[in-house]
Design a protein around this nucleic acid. Structure first.
Lengths: 168, 168
DNA sequence: CCACTCTTTCACTTTCTTTTGAAAGTTCAA
DNA sequence: TTGAACTTTCAAAAGAAAGTGAAAGAGTGG
């Protein structure tokens, strides 16, 4: 397989992977592109490589920077901004985990805690079923939260000490 | 908070959670509804509770059954089909993990393996950067695969023995 | 302060997903 | 075999999400 072809396929695959996980396809594609390029790219470069518009490029690059997956790079003597992505996939994974936790899990934990305080006769089976479900989910969510926290600050944690070393 | 209100909010929350994770919103809502109901519901019941059409209900219930998250229940003497969802959230989580792995991770592993065989001079920095990225991701994916496998058949595994007991 | 280069914004368009509801299909008791 | 009860399908409509590109904005060197 030729490099160009392989590159295209990788970008394509990473893009649809992102889409399945609720991440904008273009955003994932830009990320893929920057991951496999040895040097930083300009907005122009990205537009050309992926055949997307200026506006779209700008929006999604900005979002990637928000996620902490991409960085602005200034090349001395150049006016343009360049962009580059973290290439250590473990760091990428922890960044994503951190970000999704913050955006999704944390609000859910809040909601679930509220939902536990539903009033009603504990003998009513509807009330009981509801409370049981919420309690189970709440417990699960808190445990998931713990696991993700460990993963995210894995440098120092027990999780890293045991699990990560086994795999990395 | 009243039960009805809490129910509505839970369904709503679970629905948008699903949406963020690439699962159809209605599908997640039906799942939420079935999880908190003590008894099985008919298609009619689901339509009424969620204000959705017959076709939509049918499609998404079928999909939930495919995922292994919902079961058909036949009530003796009744012609209608009833549906119920697994209420143990740990089982739900392993079902989802199993299914997403099968649908997403497995195909990716295949693609990544192919992409490693890109031809080209290893001294060309573009080729090198590409190969390095793919190799890193490939390794990561295989390790993720192992972890998920352990999680999915957690009854028997080391993963269960150590991790799960700590949390469950 | 102007001219130039690059970045950001945003109203509009396009594309993709989801939902609907009527019609066709299936099942089963009588 | 019929028809009532229920389920499934599917084409069309609605809705949501993403992408475009022209115009406005920002920063910089002359």
């Amino acid at each position: 397989m030729k490099l160009a072809e392989a590159k295209a396929q990788f970008i394509q695959t990473w893009g649809s992977l992102g889409a399945q996980w609720g991440i904008n396809r273009t955003m994932a594609q830009i990320h893929a592109l920057l991951m496999i390029m040895p040097d930083p790219l300009s907005a122009e470069d990205i537009m050309t490589e992926l055949n997307i518009s200026r506006g779209n490029t700008n929006m999604n690059v900005r979002e990637l920077i928000n996620w902490g997956l991409v960085e602005r790079v200034l090349i001395p003597g150049e006016r343009k901004e360049y962009f580059t992505a973290e290439k250590d996939i473990w760091k990428v994974a922890t960044e994503i985990a951190r970000e999704r936790k913050r955006r999704e899990l944390d609000p859910i934990l809040k909601t679930l805690n509220q939902l536990q305080e539903v009033e009603g006769d504990a003998k009513d089976k509807h009330v009981k079923a509801f409370k049981d479900s919420i309690q189970g989910i709440n417990k699960f969510a808190h445990q998931t939260d713990k696991v993700i926290n460990s993963f995210v600050k894995s440098e120092e944690s027990w999780f890293y000490g045991t699990l990560m070393k086994l795999f990395k």
